[in-house]
């Protein structure tokens, strides 16, 4: 699903950014921790998508091959989907895959554009803070609520709301930070799209 706008490289832009190569020890450790976290996120995301494919496939095979529905397969697949999106939103931020309309900011004076990103970043992080707080509250209610099919306590699936929001906030902060400090061109999305 090719690159959205001409000349915009997605993905590669995100490396380095805030944390330049020759750096003191704490910064190097932070960078390594970040790399480790990102590898873990990648792995979890792969497993979630694979789970969705296999669960739905198994459901189709059982329904048409053996005339039998696997109880809870659809619900498990749906939970995997929600987790994939909530955690994947941070991944999409890292890869600059989010949909954004950059026709205007590309034409602004660069200093002005970077200044504009400061309050914008604040508002975005505030929104993720709202999601994180709400997720924690939902986990409280979910503790005595069961899911319809698997009869799973809902605080387990809801846990991805705060976790996903936190990871999204980390990647958003890195992306906005790099742009505001002038280490990257002023853009937080990428324009790679599917529709």
């Amino acid at each position: 699903m090719g690159n959205g706008q001409p000349c915009r490289m997605s993905g590669a832009a995100s490396k380095g950014g805030l944390l330049p190569a020759p750096a003191p020890l704490p910064l190097r450790m932070a960078r390594e921790a970040l790399a480790l976290l990102r590898r873990l996120v990648d792995l979890v995301l792969l497993l979630l998508l694979a789970a969705m494919v296999l669960l739905v496939l198994a459901q189709v095979i059982f329904r048409y091959g053996f005339n039998h529905s696997i109880a809870g397969a659809d619900e498990a697949a749906t939970f995997a989907q929600i987790w994939m999106v909530l955690l994947g939103a941070g991944y999409a931020m890292r890869q600059r895959l989010h949909v954004s309309i950059e026709l205007v900011i590309e034409r602004l004076l660069e200093r002005l554009a970077r200044l504009l990103l400061v309050p914008v970043a604040g508002l975005c992080l505030w929104f993720l803070w709202v999601v994180l707080q709400g997720g924690l509250l939902l986990m409280q209610v979910g503790a005595w609520q069961t899911s319809p099919a698997l009869q799973l306590p809902m605080n387990i699936p809801y846990a991805m709301l705060p976790v996903g929001a936190a990871y999204f906030a980390l990647e958003a902060a890195l992306a906005f930070g790099a742009a505001i400090l002038g280490r990257e061109k002023v853009a937080t999305g990428g324009g790679v799209r599917v529709d």
């Binding site: 995301l45 989907q81 994939m84 991944y91 999409a92 895959l97 790679v192 529709d195």
Partner: peptide
């Protein structure tokens, strides 16, 4: 995953 997450 990245593209779907961005849309969804």
């Amino acid at each position: 995953v990245g593209i779907s997450a961005a849309v969804m």
